[in-house]
Nucleic acid binder design. Structure first.
Lengths: 219, 219
DNA sequence: ATTACAATCTAACGATTCTTGGATTGTTTG
DNA sequence: CAAACAATCCAAGAATCGTTAGATTGTAAT
């Protein structure tokens, strides 16, 4: 039996996307997947949830066609079904930041600790990084760096930062970034670097925000 | 008692936006409000739902801060809280069209009846309208035209089209538009015009899509 | 004041959704 | 074949959501 094509039939399908992004856990999974393809296990670990719960949420995302899967041995790798999905996540988050006061104060409160370079434009950061004036470090897990990173950035995962401090030039200004405005890894990195006498800042942009701004991503 | 600022607290707020757009009815209301501010009564009528149900859905949208209200006598006018909300609607709909096959076939089936100028670019349409090669008509209710319309378009609501046919130049090509890809008013207008011997086409763009494409809106 | 009417509020039912626990499938390795 | 393990499936209780009906609020007109 064919579905009757009414107006409400069309809206129902769009609402499937809305339902998919109506759960905090699923949004977190989408943000994690925006950093690159991951297995259910790593997704569950990084979102701090049970693997069975992660699987259930991923099922919902897959039914809304926002994610796709690929089997490799006994692992199943999930990925976003397109760059537009990461773009949608950024878009929804920006609308939330614009209109929900509670969210804005929470973000301000977070950003208060290590001052971020919010004033700095993306382009000027790019030219400074190109010229070598600053060193841009990607503090996410290395796998995410490999999947795509900001131009001129080098990988220096937060977990290894302490033992790999020697890799960093002494005098230069360090700029750290991670998964985006909701991610705290760059804050921790900046805190650590300042304790060791470095001049360090963070930017709130992640790869998705950078790409949404129309700027290039290296691979 | 202050809310604890955890990661999940942030995602919960973004999910409020997701929840707001997870209902077909609410999406339809958002699309209607994207055409301009409206009272609860007109919203209920145009969405073909009970006023009390419309009120309940509008309440949900207001709690997610996607709409705002203004009282005028015994009427309460609702409007989107910003242009970014209309943009979000377009964005979500585009993601749905991209990934949900059922939606795409339904749209194709609809667009089959009066062939649309999908091939035509927005810019070339704009230049043809400016030069007077074609006549662009806005077949939405006049109030929506007043709230904002495509450049060089004239208002010719579907309800009045039949008695105001004399307003249209005989030889020229007519291009009709309405609220967007989900709206059928332009299809009906084209059907009527062709029956009367006019050369008529439709474009699926509405004001929101036009604006999302970076093009100007007159007022 | 009384009436009319737009809009909201309250209550309640059925239908979903979220989450957890236990069982099951599918693949690799010994 | 058996054991180990990633991932899914299934079932069930708690919580939330969508919808309808009736009652209520607030403003304007008579």
């Amino acid at each position: 039996m064919k579905p009757t094509i009414t107006k409400s039939y069309l809206y129902e399908h769009v609402a499937r996307i809305g339902k998919a992004i109506s759960s905090p856990k699923r949004l977190e999974l989408i943000e994690l997947l925006a950093q690159g393809e991951k297995t259910v296990e790593t997704l569950a670990a990084q979102a701090h949830i049970d693997m069975r719960l992660a699987s259930a949420h991923l099922r919902a995302l897959r039914e809304a066609r926002l994610v796709e899967t690929r089997r490799e041995g006994k692992f199943i790798h999930y990925r976003l079904s397109g760059p537009d999905v990461a773009q949608l996540w950024v878009n929804v988050r920006e609308v939330a930041e614009e209109h929900l006061v509670e969210l804005r104060v929470a973000l301000d409160q977070m950003a208060a600790s290590p001052d971020s370079l919010s004033s700095e434009s993306r382009e000027s950061l790019l030219t400074k990084a190109r010229s070598g004036d600053i060193v841009v470090i990607d503090v996410r897990p290395e796998a995410e760096y490999v999947a795509g990173h900001l131009p001129f950035a080098r990988s220096l995962p937060l977990a290894e930062l302490e033992k790999r401090l020697a890799d960093l030039p002494a005098g230069k200004e360090i700029v750290a970034y991670c998964r985006g405005p909701f991610c705290l890894m760059s804050d921790e990195a900046v805190k650590l670097l300042r304790q060791r006498g470095y001049t360090a800042h963070k930017i709130t942009d992640g790869v998705s925000e950078w790409r949404a701004g129309g700027l290039p991503i290296e691979n």
